[in-house]
């Protein structure tokens, strides 16, 4: 919550009738910083975005964009938004859509049009949006959001439904914007998608902020176990389980979990079984496990 933050959210709560969509969330985003908001559908991500845009009024708490109140002229000029699902009028060309939004934002269309080049759809500028692929429409949406070099980019699941190449290029554009000083706050379902492309993540579940920090830190703090799946030789599954402990998952396999530092010991015990073991498979916790750890398990823990 430094004064330099372009977006500062302080103890924000938003209610729809009896439902609390966002519950006591505090978050700050500094200029040039890329922050990802992670959560399931209904975790409160879109609600938070809409509050930043001034569409929803907080029940309690405060929210400032560059020191200004959401929805004010200053805030509107500072923030650019790309919703998850946006369908631009099919009959307009890409250049016309961009010109339209440039004028809405008080930016000369001449200055805005090169953004089509930035997002890689300059060739299609004169074509009707109706002929665009999903990826091209999303790039047009991003170009729209980049008009006037905003201080804060709000992107609501911007890469859902994009192919991996488009997705990579999308994040490259974001990285360039962030280097130029734009703060990026985006939401996503998937942690693995944003690995190495984001400075910090914030995990939301049921409207509450469960975890916040750099991805590597969160991953270490989670301390998730390693799963070793051992397939026993014909008829030896009882012997394997007796030696290793763990859990039978079907007629022939046993699953053992251990902490990262106990991995070598577990493998040594496994080696003692010799020909009783037909095959082994080691699964390290991946990023989605980390995400599940914070959004699911901790969420239950917090309620108990």
């Amino acid at each position: 919550m430094t004064d330099a933050a372009i977006l500062s959210v302080e103890d924000l709560t938003i209610r729809f009738g009896a439902v609390t969509a966002v519950d006591g969330v505090s978050l700050a985003v500094a200029p040039g910083e890329r922050v990802a908001l992670l959560g399931h559908n209904g975790a409160g991500k879109s609600t938070l975005f809409k509050t930043v845009l001034g569409f929803l009024k907080p029940a309690t708490g405060r929210l400032f964009i560059g020191g200004a109140v959401p929805g004010s002229d200053v805030a509107r000029r500072a923030v650019s938004y790309l919703p998850e699902q946006v369908v631009f009028p099919k009959a307009l060309t890409g250049a016309e859509v961009l010109t339209h939004f440039a004028r809405l934002k008080g930016v000369a269309p001449k200055v805005a049009l090169p953004l089509l080049e930035t997002v890689g759809i300059a060739d299609a500028a004169g074509r009707a949006v109706g002929t665009y692929s999903k990826g091209m429409r999303q790039r047009l949406g991003l170009a729209q959001a980049l008009i006037g070099t905003p201080c804060l980019l709000l992107l609501d699941e911007p890469t859902s439904g994009l192919d991996p190449v488009s997705r990579r290029e999308f994040y490259e554009v974001l990285e360039a914007s962030a280097r130029a000083g734009t703060a990026v706050l985006l939401s996503s379902h998937s942690l693995s998608e944003i690995e190495n492309r984001i400075d910090r993540i914030a995990i939301l579940a049921k409207g509450r902020l469960r975890a916040e920090g750099a991805l590597a830190d969160l991953s270490r703090r989670a301390g998730l176990p390693i799963r070793i799946r051992v397939e026993a030789a014909e008829g030896r599954v009882e012997a394997v389980q007796a030696h290793l402990g763990g859990e039978r998952v079907n007629g022939r396999s046993v699953v053992v979990t251990c902490r990262a530092e106990d991995k070598v010991g577990a493998l040594a015990r496994l080696a003692e079984l010799g020909s009783d073991v037909a095959d082994i498979d080691i699964a390290l916790p991946d990023l989605d496990d980390v995400y599940r750890h914070y959004s699911g398990v901790t969420a239950q823990g917090a309620h108990q």
């Binding site: 569409f55 938004y81 919703p83």
Partner: peptide, 8 residues
């Protein structure tokens, strides 16, 4: 939502 996010 896009249009209302602008100063309009």
């Amino acid at each position: 939502a896009l249009v209302l996010a602008t100063p309009l």
